[in-house]
Design a protein around this nucleic acid. Sequence first.
DNA 1: CATGTTTCGTATTGATTGATACGTTTCTTG
DNA 2: CAAGAAACGTATCAATCAATACGAAACATG
Lengths: 222, 222
Amino acid sequence: MENLERPRGGRPRAFDPEAALDAAMHLFWEHGYEATSLAMLREAMGLTPPQIYNAFTDKETLFRRALARYHDREIGFALDALSAAIPTEEAIRLLLTGAAMAYTRPGKPGGCLFISGALAASPQAQGIADELKTYRKATEAAIAARLAKGRDAGELPAGLSVERLAKYLTGVMHGMSIQARDGASAEDLQALAETTLAAWAAEVRKAADSKGEADVGPVAND
Amino acid sequence: MENLERPRGGRPRAFDPEAALDAAMHLFWEHGYEATSLAMLREAMGLTPPQIYNAFTDKETLFRRALARYHDREIGFALDALSAAIPTEEAIRLLLTGAAMAYTRPGKPGGCLFISGALAASPQAQGIADELKTYRKATEAAIAARLAKGRDAGELPAGLSVERLAKYLTGVMHGMSIQARDGASAEDLQALAETTLAAWAAEVRKAADSKGEADVGPVAND
DNA sequence: CATGTTTCGTATTGATTGATACGTTTCTTG
DNA sequence: CAAGAAACGTATCAATCAATACGAAACATG
């Protein structure tokens, strides 16, 4: 998966590429793609420009590597929550709770790199903005797929629009990311997640009522 | 309020400052503060650099002017909804519906300038990022104040945490802004708003139940 | 009409941006 | 131990960034 091993001999690297990538990731996370200059990267990574360019080609490639690393190391909770063998509602609860924690980790930048990396961008960096959008859309698609799976399994009413609910949940997570950047605590985001789950229950009940069915189960009482 | 009138004679301006500011606002809205270069502003505003600097001091001042103009001309719906003499729930409904429309206006950049302007920033532009955060926090505070007013008027249960609910609603609006930037339609955002209002009802009921009171009224039925 | 004031247009300014040239050093391989 | 390969450090590249100098032009006021 990692294509960093050298094919043949030569002078060995004087630094740890993973540690350097980690430093770059945190810097991009904090300041975004375009606002992070090579001078800042140089200092944070402890490297000279030729070292950076030899190892990571250019700034754009370095950022994409940082994105992949972020996806693997910082938000594994999302994939884990959605793929776990647990009820749908519990998976969504794990997802939102995980986001509340991941967006407010001590010593880490607040919020999500997929959002902080670039929302608006210059025309030259449009490709980066598009890549980030792709990551965000993938999250939404994964949530929708999980909801569809729960609906097909009879956990959710057949009349429920999974796309609509996925868009709501993704939107809430995006909002949590911005709230985190504005100083919200883990507890604040946890409360936000709980309010969101209340909406979940209301939406599910509404969809079930509109079909006149009563086989809802997990959200029947009050 | 506008301090653009000259005190004494001199050569008149060859351009309309408001139209120029409008062009700058839309450009900042689309690309954000830092990613918008003076070359781009020059072309969009149809002005030479000295014209821009003479009229708006510098890029930062121009951006702050654009922010104020955006606040006055593009999101008046928010203040209107919160200050209207209508029930609290209706005010929130207007607020969210207004956001769904304002974030997807044809011919305008998607989302909200207060978010697209800068989430992450370079150390040099930290002041701009802080100013945007101030605008976002002001929105949250205005929502909280409106909720508190509704609670004090007996429209909402006394046990309701207006700060928590305000944080949720603000977060949802932020999420709507990002969804709009990712291509969501006005209908998508409207659906998101309706799901949010379902959460509203659930939260209010929960707060009322925890107090054991029944004087809720607008959300009693099912 | 003379004077003061403001903006005009043209041509640049110094600083910073992302990215390299080049000769040297240090490793693997045969 | 020679030959090839890769990364090293130093110094710097052209392009773009935000911002101005400067003299001419166009207004208001006396």
